[in-house]
Design a protein around this nucleic acid. Structure first.
Length: 845
RNA sequence: GCCCGCGUGGUGGAAUGGUAGACACAGGGGACUUAAAAUCCCUAGGCAGGAAUGCCGUGCCGGUUCGAAUCCGGCCGCGGGUACCA
């Protein structure tokens, strides 16, 4: 028996798979197809343990499905556009493409030794002109269908770097590089009309049976369907054109509790008022320059400015309410104006307290007094007592109150019930170089004109420098100048590029034929779509997945995907993140500098500098809290790394990275290898064949179930148990050989190389990857006797071994004859005797 | 702030209404060895006890149930998302 040398074994089998071309996916109508996809990586430079975990999970599924007779597609590519490449290019004084393609080469080289069952012939990067050119073709088709349009939106503007900043590049209202105070600037930008699909994207969630409930819930909440009332307040002494202020409310039942009207700083009325009121102008400017992220806005102090204007209350024209401009009201949502009801909204309560506005309760708890120290905000499904209601019963649920109020207002003719969604249109314009150019041209005569499809791709120019502020496309000497596709006159190219979420919204469809001359090939897409199992991080639960669902619909409308593929992912699994502590020091200017875990020992750098330890977060290159798998792979081999990342934690849970135990995994695989050698040389006959055969079938059953249910850690625990059983078994050669064959096969999705090696050691000529998955004999799974725990008042006191099919009455007799029970009863009768057949007995005294 | 999760021995975790701690790591003890490595065996939630055994125990507080880690309500802590990180 030779020693187990992982590197030798793994190289050999990877070569054998390559030579047999086993992972190349071809259309084959004779087998059911199965498309496994893991979310493709951003090529940050090095793979980390989070990648290994993610791709190993996908590989287990892919290999398992191959063994169960499926024709599997398991591709890989690179989400290759994005900001980090521009940052790296600036830092290294090179080109984002150079950095990106080098990273791809490095990461591919790190992934290949893992022995993943990937069809590398389909690999592409989203920054390949062949890919983004097809994306541009779809953009043009979407424009034609009215799915892409332009409108104004604000961006974070760094006045020193003269550039647009991403939200993560804004720290405490300042640019991360320049430290300058960030301004909000309004630009004309491209949008996708995802809001046309709000209802459809919401209702279709109901049919996503194999998606995690939490993801579906998050998407439902994000889309945020609400029923409410839209109506207008009449403005007293209104500036011309502003006689009415339209508001939207989801709580029209609280109308009698209104104490002010709030409008956004971007509301037309505010914009008119600021023209001749410097104070209002200053206030609006300060609101507009507040951070735009939802989080920052919600946490920011609520501020308002009394315009001095008043509106009439619609239910009582003599009642006047003040109009405030407020920093917490968004122009993008609803009408950009609301009425405040401080008694039943915490934010309005704080606002009213601050500006000394009335707080009038509309309803109280049904049988308790109202606590007036805070807003009373019961669930809409809860019954309340209306003390200032105007429609419906005095005691009704909030929901009923809303319905009655809408009906009343519609009847009186001053408002109408409307359905609204929180979901906003998808702004896809980016004022950056390293992204897919938006393929349109601006012509003085023709306006905004799409590029001709035969001129695609509109390629990014290579001769750019990123050392100057702003978008290099804007200042490129020749790239911007072009001929108008419509009239041929001199015109200018659009310099905005697309959000990288666009790139990742359709890559799954491109994998079905990455060489097609159109975005998709109809036959290939029809054969391979949908993705049968999609696997990726929970951090993509909303944006990426929602955008992909939208995009598949848009592709259907533009003829690039069939009706059946509008929900592209049949099943979704969200794996947890691999987290690690973050090690930070600060540079001379006080800005954070991050350090790799491998460079930190006992809280110090090699030169003795103390590092600040920030609690664990998901591994990310930008925080440098990443652990490179190379050390484990070179020390123990890919099978150890694969088994190890799957073994100890449930796949959906986050794991704090620790290498403790990798050594033990390697020992275990060595043990399996030794057992394999012993089994092959085992004597012909022995003792306990029946037990081993039974254990083999039980393990086949349990491991198969665990893999089907994504419980890879549980599958591995069962395999440990079975390995122990096999090692201790004194059974004869035949039983042992079939046990070993099952072990090798059941392990093969996790440790494919070792399994192939054992398979060949056993004299099998074909590859284990081609062997059909073992099937358990149902008859072997039935247990003859069961052990029933006996509980007395819910506490376990004894146990009872009985035939599995013993009738309840017989069990009851045995229980009453049990010593512990007799002792506890002390001559009395039990109050209750609960027998759950096959599970448990509980005697209540 | 809001939305969604998670919390079990020294550690990773198992059990999703029915014997809490499977399987593994680290630890302790032993066998083999001149010795070490490797391997194998035993042990192992806490407290009390020589043991049998008893009591306590799944972040905290309360509830539902014959029975709760699991279901419900409230709190605490941690993580993800929050529309320009990907």
């Amino acid at each position: 028996m030779t020693r187990y040398t992982a590197q030798d074994v793994e190289t050999r089998w990877q070569k054998a798979w390559d030579e047999a071309d086993v992972f190349k996916a071809k259309r084959d109508e004779s087998k059911p197809k199965y498309y496994v996809l893991e979310m493709f990586p951003y090529p940050s430079g090095r793979i980390h343990m989070g990648h290994v975990r993610n791709y190993t999970m996908g590989d287990v599924v892919a290999r398992y499905k191959m063994s169960t007779g499926h024709n599997v597609l398991h591709p890989m590519g690179w989400d290759a556009f994005g900001m980090p490449a521009e940052n790296a290019a600036m830092a290294l004084n090179s080109h984002p493409g150079t950095w990106t393609y080098q990273n791809i080469a490095d990461m591919r080289a790190q992934m290949k030794p893992l022995g993943l069952s990937i069809d590398w012939s389909r690999e592409f990067a989203t920054c390949d002109p062949e890919y983004y050119g097809q994306q541009q073709a779809m953009f043009i088709d979407m424009m034609a269908k009215g799915l892409a349009y332009r409108k104004n939106a604000t961006v974070n503007w760094d006045p020193v770097d003269m550039t647009v900043l991403a939200n993560e590049q804004v720290e405490n209202g300042r640019g991360w590089r320049s430290g300058a105070e960030v301004e909000q600037r309004e630009l004309t930008q491209w949008f996708f009309k995802i809001s046309d699909f709000s209802e459809e994207l919401l209702s279709a969630i109901d049919d996503l049976d194999n998606w995690p409930a939490k993801v579906k819930l998050m998407q439902r909440n994000w889309i945020g369907k609400s029923e409410g009332l839209e109506f207008a307040f009449s403005l007293i002494d209104a500036p011309e054109g502003h006689e009415q202020v339209e508001v939207y409310t989801t709580r029209p039942d609280t109308l009698m509790g209104a104490s002010f009207v709030g409008i956004s700083a971007d509301h037309p009325l505010a914009k008119t008022l600021e023209l001749d009121n410097a104070e209002i102008a200053a206030f609006c400017t300060s609101c507009r320059n507040e951070a735009t992220t939802e989080e920052a806005r919600e946490k920011a102090e609520k501020r308002g400015f009394d315009t001095g204007l008043r509106v009439q209350h619609p239910l009582d024209p003599s009642w006047e309410l003040p109009v405030y401009i407020a920093n917490f009201i968004l122009m993008d949502y609803g009408t950009g104006a609301v009425f405040g009801c401080p008694a039943h909204d915490q934010r309005d309560f704080e606002f009213a307290t601050k500006y000394e506005l009335a707080i009038n309760a509309v309803f109280t708890p049904v049988d308790a007094d109202l606590d007036t120290s805070e807003a009373y905000v019961p669930l809409k499904s809860e019954q309340v007592r209306y003390v200032r209601g105007f429609a419906g019963d005095a005691i009704q649920t909030g929901a009923a109150g809303v319905t009655s109020a809408i009906a009343y207002c519609e009847d009186k003719g001053f408002g109408q019930g409307v359905t609204r969604f929180r979901l906003r249109d998808w702004g896809l314009s980016r004022q950056r170089y390293w992204g897919c150019p938006i393929p349109v041209v601006h012509c003085e005569d023709c306006g905004v004109v799409p590029e001709k499809k035969e001129n695609l791709p509109v390629k990014l120019p290579q001769d750019v420098t990123l050392d100057l502020p702003g978008n290099p496309l804007d200042r490129h000497p020749t790239w911007r100048n072009c001929a108008c596709p419509a009239c041929g006159k001199d015109a200018l190219r659009e310099t905005d590029t697309m959000d990288t979420f666009v790139d990742s919204s359709w890559y799954y469809a491109r994998f079905t034929n990455p060489a097609a001359a159109t975005p998709t090939d109809a036959e290939d897409a029809a054969y391979w779509m949908n993705v049968d199992q999609y696997i990726g991080g929970i951090e993509h639960a909303i944006l990426h997945l929602l955008y992909s669902r939208f995009f598949a619909r848009a592709m259907n409308l533009t003829g690039h995907l069939s009706e059946g593929a509008v929900e592209p992912f049949n099943a979704l699994f969200t794996q947890g993140m691999v987290t690690h502590e973050i090690y930070q020091t600060r540079d001379a200017k006080g800005r954070p500098v991050y350090h790799l875990p491998q460079d930190v020992t006992d809280g110090k750098l090699a030169d003795g500098t103390d590092v600040e330890i920030i609690p664990s977060a998901k591994m990310s290159k930008s925080k440098k809290n990443v652990v490179d798998p190379d050390a484990i792979i070179s020390q123990y081999g890919a099978d150890t790394a694969r088994w190890f990342v799957l073994s100890d934690s449930p796949p959906e849970r986050d794991v704090e990275w620790s290498a403790a135990g990798a050594d033990a995994t390697f020992k275990h695989l060595n043990r399996v290898w030794r057992i394999a050698g012993d089994v092959v040389e085992a004597p012909e006959s022995g003792k306990g064949d029946a037990e081993l055969i039974r254990a083999t079938h039980k393990t086949i059953h349990e491991v198969t179930q665990a893999i089907d249910g994504f419980a890879f850690n549980a599958a591995i625990a069962k395999l440990y148990g079975f390995t122990n059983t096999l090692q201790k078994s004194k059974a004869g050669a035949e039983a042992k050989r079939s046990a070993l064959a099952a072990l090798a096969q059941l392990m093969s999705p996790m440790t494919p190389h070792l399994s192939e090696e054992i398979w060949s050691l056993m004299g099998e000529a074909s590859l284990i990857i081609h062997a059909p998955w073992p099937v358990a004999d149902e008859a072997m799974l039935v247990e003859d006797t069961v052990t029933l725990p006996i509980q007395i008042n819910g506490k376990r006191r004894d146990e009872l071994k009985v035939p599995a099919d013993m009738p309840k009455e017989e069990v009851e007799k045995l229980v009453l004859a049990n010593d512990a029970v007799i002792k506890a009863l002390n001559g009395g009768v039990p109050k209750k005797l609960i027998v759950v057949p096959g599970r448990i007995v509980n005697v209540v005294i």
